[in-house]
Design a protein around this nucleic acid. Structure first.
Lengths: 138, 138
DNA sequence: TGTAATTCCTCTAGTCACTAGAGCTTCAAG
DNA sequence: CTTGAAGCTCTAGTGACTAGAGGAATTACA
């Protein structure tokens, strides 16, 4: 049996976050000690590690809920799980593409500030005048 | 004079967001019509466009506040504006690096699901077992 | 000038995924 | 048997908005 602190150390999920997951229904409410403290089994540790891992990979809570449901029905076809992972991959790729556009724009803005005062600072001018942008961001 | 809707159409900032910015003190409270509706001048349109542009580039509200303060003092040295932009650039680069690690991991997870059912689905297995990861993410 | 459609107003509350803090109780070690 | 860490519940705050209720003002057209 693990205390909530044990669970936290083993999974890297913070204590208040574990309680929050319980409230959200992502993890089941565990047994309690006589003094009303949470006591977890190995199974619950595994589930929390699963959640942690999926969160690290950027899955949202609803995705995770779906994946957990699926993993509880091992006889079902796994197309749904695949689709969730694929969507997450697409979303990550979109974010990367968008951030790269921003990176290019910021490089341009930040690198060529030749002014000594704010009055002729390129950073401020570039932000004031969208027409200076080479690329459509956002 | 522009109504809040005009301003919204011209800058691409949504109406409730403009009111929110006013509440946050990012834009000044404008004049009002006899019937208590907001009436904006050209200057306020420019400032909102500036904010929109900076938000698109991922600057946080506090950064924008600082940049606006700076742009109101054109005689000051612009090192501070430069620094804000540089920091934003670094933060964007970090996000890109992190997302690329996730992308690699997700590609591996999503691409090689050979199972027909959840029971042997690689997506679920990979999430259950961090040891399957090639890379430390998160 | 009338009226109908659109836009505007304020206010509260919700989003996401936590995080922080107050004030109290229980547990484990020495 | 005491002390200090860890646990408990509850409320509220974060960032940057977004949604909705319920009502008032403005604008377009007949």
């Amino acid at each position: 049996m693990f205390s909530i602190g044990d669970l936290s150390r083993r999974t890297g999920v913070k204590v208040p976050t574990i309680r929050y997951y319980e409230q959200m229904g992502l993890v089941a409410a565990p047994e309690r000690s006589e003094g009303n403290q949470r006591r977890y089994s190995r199974q619950e540790l595994d589930r929390l590690a699963f959640i942690r891992h999926a969160r690290d990979l950027g899955f949202g809570v609803e995705d995770i809920r779906a994946l957990i449901d699926l993993s509880g029905h091992p006889e079902q076809p796994c197309g749904h799980a695949d689709r969730i992972a694929e969507e997450q991959l697409l979303s990550v790729r979109e974010k990367i593409a968008r951030l790269k556009r921003l990176e290019a724009e910021l490089e341009r803005i930040a690198s060529c500030c030749g002014g000594k005062t704010v009055g002729d600072c390129y950073v401020i001018r570039a932000l004031s005048d969208h027409a200076l942008c080479t690329d459509e961001h956002g």
